[in-house]
Amino acid sequence: MQRKIEKLICGRETIDGAGVKLTRVLGPQTIKEFDPILMLDCFDSTNFNDYKASFPMHPHRGIETISYVYEGSMTHKDSLGNTDTIQNGQVQWMSAGSGILHEEILHPSTRMLGVQLWLNLPQKDKMSDPFYKSIKEDEIKELELENGKMRILAGEYQGENGYKSKFLPFDYYDIHLNPNATQMIHTKKDYFVMLFLLQGDAFINDQLVKEKTAIKLSLGEYFELKSTDKKAQILFMSSTPLNEPCEWGGPIVMNTKEELNLAFEELRNGTFLKTNTNY
């Protein structure tokens, strides 16, 4: 059965961190429709002033943050003692679990292009130990398509494997299409699927969708992508919905208001971090 477009979300310009200009695509208003993906921000700038303020040290609990820097570079530091830089096609995967503090420093680049998404953690894993993982070039499988290529950032595609999520199953692909190309993409039929047009417009099952748009697809086993007379870069994200209650307060996402209030109380009294830290 062919998947169909159920929802289109166009991003809006906003400022976050210490003054970073970005495009916010998903947020609190899209929780139910895009479950388990909570947030998606896109960075696309050739002006260092748009992002040089970066994201100073801040807390998270109850989520995983997954950053894909297609062009540019970003350095991560956290309360576990990790310091690491990703750049040009690499991925940063951070599981906040029970609590972590981290910062993300964006460096000067000809172009800063990429996305960060927040993946919700299941209720049973909200207070798991935090960890950090970077996915570098040697861990990203690149497949040749009939008229383009696919980079498996995480999960698997038709027997080809990338990094495996510890909690939710999560397939994350970076799909590149040549101009005037058509490509069928196979999917796990009962999984939630969303697409994000990072660069270029594209046809999804013959419907033209503009760049920087998120698309929720119906259930099914495949869908068809088609580029215009220009190249297109489409991000594919797929998982299983949690269908759990969600209470979101800034950088923290829990299941109840009581849990959310407790997290902020612990931030105030210095008991937020639950694991040994080097902060």
Rank of each mutant, 00 (worst) to 15 (best):
T275W: 10
K189I: 03
K32C: 08
D84F: 04
S109K: 09
G27K: 03
K166T: 10
W248V: 01
V193I: 09
P169A: 15
G159F: 06
Y68Q: 01
E244Y: 10
Y70A: 14
R61C: 05
P245K: 12
N147Y: 02
T85Y: 12
L273G: 10
K52L: 10
K231C: 07
T14S: 11
K166V: 12
V209W: 03
K126N: 06
K230Q: 13
S165T: 01
P122W: 12
Y51V: 00
E266N: 11
E156Q: 07
L113T: 02
T75Y: 01
K77M: 12
T228S: 04
F55Q: 08
A232P: 02
V20W: 03
G148W: 02
P251H: 12
S54K: 03
V69G: 02
L217Y: 01
L145S: 08
L153R: 00
K212C: 05
T65Y: 09
I175R: 02
Y191R: 12
E259T: 03
D174F: 01
K136F: 11
G11W: 01
I63Q: 07
Q90G: 04
V253F: 13
D16I: 07
D171S: 13
L208Q: 03
L121E: 08
K52R: 08
K166Q: 14
Q199V: 01
D171Q: 10
K274Q: 07
Q92G: 04
F34V: 00
K189Q: 15
N82T: 13
F272Y: 10
Q92K: 02
S227E: 01
K230P: 11
Y132V: 13
R61F: 06
T240Q: 12
T277V: 04
K136W: 05
P59S: 05
K21Q: 12
E144W: 00
M127Q: 14
F192S: 13
H176D: 01
E266C: 09
F203R: 02
K77P: 10
I140Y: 02
L262R: 15
L262P: 08
L225K: 07
F192K: 12
L273M: 09
L260D: 14
E247F: 15
P56G: 13
R61Y: 04
E156R: 02
E258W: 07
E211F: 07
E156I: 00
K52M: 12
W93S: 05
S95F: 11
P36V: 01
Y157R: 00
T110I: 03
W118K: 02
L153M: 09
N243A: 06
W248Q: 04
L262K: 11
L121Y: 14
I15R: 13
F223E: 02
K189P: 08
D16E: 15
R12K: 15
G270P: 05
P130S: 15
L219F: 12
E247K: 11
E160I: 00
N120S: 11
I105C: 08
R12A: 10
K126F: 11
K21I: 11
I135T: 02
L260P: 11
Q87P: 06
L40K: 05
D229L: 13
L145Q: 03
H107G: 07
G19C: 11
G114K: 03
N47W: 08
G159Y: 05
T275S: 15
I234V: 13
T110F: 11
F236C: 01
M74G: 04
L217S: 01
E221L: 08
V115Y: 12
M194V: 00
F192H: 14
V69L: 05
K77V: 08
